[in-house]
Computed example of a mutant assay.
Amino acid sequence: MTRPPTAAQRRVIDAAEPVTGRLKGTEGQLAALVKRGLAFRHPRPPHDHFLTPAGHRVRETPETLSETPEAVPGTPAPPAVDAGVFAARIGGEDAPVGGPSRPREVRSAWQGLLELRRMTRPDGAVDRPCGWERTHLVQAAALALEAAGHHPAGAGPGDSGYRVRATPQPEAVAVREPDPEALRACAATLEKAGWQTGEHTEPRTGVRYVLASPRRV
């Protein structure tokens, strides 16, 4: 079993920038995180350090828990607030997230994600999802929608607004929205953000939904 990070290392991890995972710390702290596979040093100047997928998992896991349950289609949405760490609204949260500062936080998170795309692409392109998005499909799709001004659904089953959920497919999320025009608008937003989408109908209910996957080329 992997030894958990020290208290000092955990503080550095928890203080990482939302979405991008950019780290700040002493050279010794950052080198120790790299050695443990929780961070990597970007090969291009200014050679900043970022969390690896393993590092992101550490940050997203409460210190008192050993694992976080995976999202399953049809299950209630998890809380969107985690100890002050930014979380995109996936729809169906029990309570609204944030206050007057929420739009600013969303814009900052989206710009950070675009910067992460730029820094992790050899050509610096930002038109396709990056590795972080492929390991955080629901959060990435929800952030793209929220940043574009779409409204997430409330906690009630019939509340209007989008809901983003995991699917059995390894690289696809389902986006549901009661309003057909709003659903098509969600699909258009995701396509503009580098996702490929397709509209489908649930066989039993006849409800339309969008299946979205990160575009590779």
Rank of each mutant, 00 (worst) to 15 (best):
T2K: 15
R3K: 12
P4D: 02
T6A: 13
T6V: 10
R10K: 06
R11I: 01
R11Q: 14
P18D: 14
T20F: 01
G21H: 01
G21L: 00
K24D: 12
K24W: 11
T26F: 07
G37T: 00
G37P: 04
L38C: 02
A39S: 01
R44I: 05
R44L: 09
P45M: 07
P45C: 10
P45G: 07
P46L: 04
H47I: 02
L51F: 00
R57E: 06
R57N: 05
R59W: 02
E63I: 10
T64P: 00
E67R: 14
P69G: 04
P73N: 09
G74C: 09
P76S: 08
P76V: 04
A77L: 10
A77R: 14
P78K: 08
P78G: 05
P79N: 13
F86E: 11
R89S: 10
P96E: 06
V97I: 11
P100E: 15
R102A: 06
R104K: 12
A109I: 05
W110D: 03
L114M: 08
L116K: 10
L116H: 11
T120F: 07
P129A: 08
C130W: 08
W132P: 09
R134L: 07
T135D: 13
V138D: 06
Q139M: 01
A142Y: 03
A144E: 05
E146Y: 10
A147P: 04
A148P: 00
H151Y: 07
P152C: 05
A153E: 02
A155N: 10
R163T: 05
T167E: 02
P180R: 01
L183N: 01
C186D: 14
W195D: 03
T197S: 06
H200R: 15
R204H: 13
G206I: 04
V207Y: 11
Y209A: 06
V210Y: 02
S213P: 07
R215G: 12
